[in-house]
Simulated scan of single mutants.
Amino acid sequence: MNALNLKKGASSKSAYNLRDLADDTLETHTLAVLVDNESGVLARVIGLFAGRGYNIDSLTVAETDHTGHRSRITVVTTGTRSVIEQIKAQLGRLVPVHQVNDLTVEGPSVERELALIKVAGKGEKRVEALRTAEIFRASVVDSTLESFVFELTGTPEKIDALIDLMRPLGLVDVARTGVAAIARGL
């Protein structure tokens, strides 16, 4: 601090204003990471995020190449542009990682998530829950006299919307898979 109580670079008229204002905005990115399918790889990738204080919004993992023993890890994370670049660079340096794709910046992609949503209710609330689920094209995968379990596949925003509408109708529980994503086209 100086006599005027200004931080260095705080004034837009300062010759020392070196801050990049766009770098302060948080962005959500979907990263597709191709790795060797061997024990400990997921722990190393997760450890990279945990050790540096990066947050994981969604995580899915599955073997995609049985003959080549490769798995695909899809991570949705939020951070500033520089943090996202740092995450991609650090992931690329891990030995079992073969490829890191940022689906958010590489072009259009398809993202889907699966959710199981349990709603309990009787009478009019039960009927309204069925109507609401039908609007979202959710399937009934389990039914008792007191509850339904709906299955919904769609974007995370679509799933959030259905969950919000089911709360007043007797939402009991939600299980979500996390985002699976793939680039469109070739």
Rank of each mutant, 00 (worst) to 15 (best):
R112A: 00
A133V: 11
A32F: 04
V61M: 06
L26H: 09
V75P: 14
K88M: 14
P108F: 06
N17M: 02
V119N: 04
H69Q: 15
A62Q: 08
N2C: 00
L186S: 10
K158A: 09
D65I: 04
L18G: 00
S109T: 12
S71F: 01
T74S: 13
D173Q: 09
A133E: 04
F49K: 09
V179T: 11
S11M: 07
A115Y: 11
D164Y: 05
A32M: 10
T153E: 04
T153A: 04
P156Y: 12
H29Y: 11
D57Y: 02
L91T: 12
N37I: 06
L94P: 05
K118V: 01
V127N: 02
E157I: 11
P156Q: 11
P168I: 13
A43Y: 04
G154Y: 03
T153M: 07
S82N: 11
E124M: 10
D173I: 04
N101C: 05
V149A: 03
I135Y: 01
G170C: 12
V33I: 15
D164R: 11
Y54R: 07
D164L: 09
I46A: 15
E113R: 04
L171R: 09
A10C: 08
A50K: 05
G170R: 09
V97Y: 00
N17W: 01
I46Q: 12
F150P: 03
K13F: 04
R176K: 06
V83M: 10
S14V: 00
V105M: 09
R44K: 14
I159K: 00
V45M: 08
V141L: 05
K8M: 02
T132P: 00
L6R: 14
T80H: 10
